[in-house]
Design a protein around this nucleic acid. Structure first.
Length: 178
DNA sequence: CGACTTTGACCAGCGC
DNA sequence: GCGCTGGTCAAAGTCG
């Protein structure tokens, strides 16, 4: 994992979300640790997480900003080697690893990663035809911080009502628009 | 019984 | 070429 265009989502005012069970935190330092000291991972805010709006039945297609969705891992040789979907990582300070974001996830793997005493868990969206993945990892430096990395966009509405998390996501979209 | 988790094995990319 | 590491697969187990 070196230089994925992992945009870091970010909610600057936690005030109106104070009733939420999750505390969205902003911690660039911890994030850069997770990134492996890439300083510019903070530039791109979340742009296309494919989060259904609160009415829950249409997917906003925020396509414009990140058109770097077909990310080319130009490491060696030919250039057009590996196509990777954009990833969107964000941190939450939570005691539980799994955020109930309203989608149904199936765990398909778990790995011990280097420089981290906590394993990383791999989840896939169980909705048919939707191959969104996410990784969940707890920081070893601060075990209260859970880093969730989403890959891909959901092609379907949210599957169960989680007003809280939708609230958070809606806020994120507001910040993105700024 | 279906959906989900666990976990070891496998594979590919990358650095040396 | 080799070893390390991240990501995925799939069989077995668990749970409601």
């Amino acid at each position: 994992m070196e230089n994925f265009p992992t945009s870091f989502s970010y909610s600057s005012s936690a005030s109106s979300a104070s009733h939420l069970p999750l505390n969205m935190i902003i911690n660039p330092h911890a994030y850069s640790e997770f990134q492996g000291s890439k300083p510019n991972g903070f530039l791109g805010l979340m742009t296309n997480m494919g989060v259904p709006s609160s009415d829950g039945n249409n997917v906003p297609q925020s396509k414009s900003l990140v058109d770097s969705d077909a990310e080319v891992k130009s490491s060696k040789g030919k250039g057009d080697k590996k196509i990777r979907k954009p990833r969107h990582a964000f941190q939450t300070r939570s005691h539980v690893d799994i955020l109930d974001d309203g989608y149904r996830w199936r765990k398909y793997g778990q790995k011990v990663v280097k420089n981290n005493k906590f394993p990383r868990s791999y989840y896939r969206c169980t909705h048919q035809g939707c191959n969104v993945k996410k990784q969940v990892q707890r920081l070893s430096k601060d075990e209260g911080i859970v880093v969730t990395t989403y890959e891909g966009m959901h092609s379907h509405p949210i599957q169960k009502s989680t007003d809280n998390f939708e609230h958070i996501l809606n806020q994120m979209q507001v910040y993105t628009a700024c």
